[in-house]
Amino acid sequence: MFYWFLKWIALGPLLRVVFRPQVEGSESVPDEGAAILASNHLSYADWLFMPLTLPRRVTFVAKAEYFTTPGVKGRLQRLFFSGAGQVPIDRSGADAAAGALMSAKKVLGEGGLFGIYPEGTRSHDGRLYRGRTGVARLALETGVPVIPTAVVGTDVVAPPGKKFGSFTRPVVRFGRPLDFSRYAGMENDRYILRAITDEIMYEIMRLSGQEYVDKYAGVAKEEAKRAEAEAKRLESEAETAEEQKKAS
């Protein structure tokens, strides 16, 4: 019940008035019944704007810390994230992926909409990265359709590393539902899982217009950090050499 208060009475109208998000293809999302919404991930604001364009609740997994922090802050966090359609998952342990899968299967088993970001983390440069196969395994184990989804402009509203950027009208696009029932019983075949995931990512790329990089986002982020650190080191060495040259 608090979710609907949050969405329609408090946060929803404010976001609609300020940002006026646009939606395309919402008819692809069923009025009832389970479905997986597989989306690109540009900003922490994605999970606010995407569900806002639908009349149904969309559930995502969130860090367990949001639900276990003690004190008044912890209670407010739990109220907010629970009301906004989040369910907890501990991503720190070896079984985090399995825990996320179980949480998702419970939501889908109850006929809900489950939102997932196949890239696994936000894109640091606006490009679309290789999807992880958990979304394919989830689709095969539950037998529900996957609806490719693209959010555009949220990285302008809330760029990586910043709480707020600038005003724009985010766009949410829903593609045609993808049915993978032809692969039923093959959820342990890694080649099938990769093929399904790549098909989903292709549809997301088509909807979002992003450049695709066949590399995991987490790997790309680490490479970018190392390259930035190396550039700073070289710059520092060059400045030191220039100072030494002037001193001599």
Rank of each mutant, 00 (worst) to 15 (best):
Q77T: 11
Q77L: 15
Q77I: 01
Q77Y: 12
Q77S: 13
R78K: 15
R78Y: 09
R78Q: 11
R78D: 02
R78V: 00
R78M: 11
L79Y: 12
L79A: 14
L79E: 06
L79Q: 03
L79I: 10
F80M: 10
F80P: 04
F81V: 09
F81Y: 14
F81R: 04
F81Q: 02
F81W: 11
S82Y: 07
S82D: 09
S82L: 11
G83V: 05
G83D: 03
G83N: 05
G83T: 06
A84T: 02
A84C: 13
G85Y: 03
Q86R: 03
Q86C: 15
Q86H: 15
Q86P: 00
Q86M: 15
Q86E: 06
Q86K: 12
Q86F: 13
V87M: 10
V87C: 01
V87N: 05
V87E: 05
P88H: 06
I89C: 09
I89F: 07
I89G: 00
I89E: 05
R91P: 04
S92A: 14
S92L: 08
S92K: 13
G93W: 14
G93R: 12
G93D: 05
A94I: 13
A94Y: 09
D95E: 15
D95W: 07
D95T: 13
D95G: 10
A97F: 11
A97T: 12
A97P: 01
A97H: 06
A98N: 08
A98L: 14
A98K: 15
G99N: 04
G99K: 04
A100E: 03
A100Q: 08
L101S: 04
M102S: 14
M102L: 13
M102G: 13
S103V: 12
S103W: 06
S103A: 15
A104V: 04
A104T: 04
K105T: 11
K105A: 13
K106R: 15
L108K: 04
L108G: 00
G109Y: 05
E110R: 15
E110C: 01
G111T: 05
G111R: 11
G111H: 09
G112M: 08
L113Y: 10
L113P: 13
L113M: 08
L113S: 07
L113C: 07
F114Q: 01
F114K: 01
F114N: 00
F114Y: 07
G115S: 04
I116Y: 07
I116R: 03
I116V: 15
I116C: 05
Y117C: 05
Y117S: 11
Y117P: 05
Y117G: 01
P118C: 01
P118Y: 04
P118M: 04
P118G: 00
E119C: 05
E119L: 08
G120K: 03
G120C: 01
G120V: 06
T121W: 08
R122H: 03
S123I: 05
S123W: 06
S123R: 08
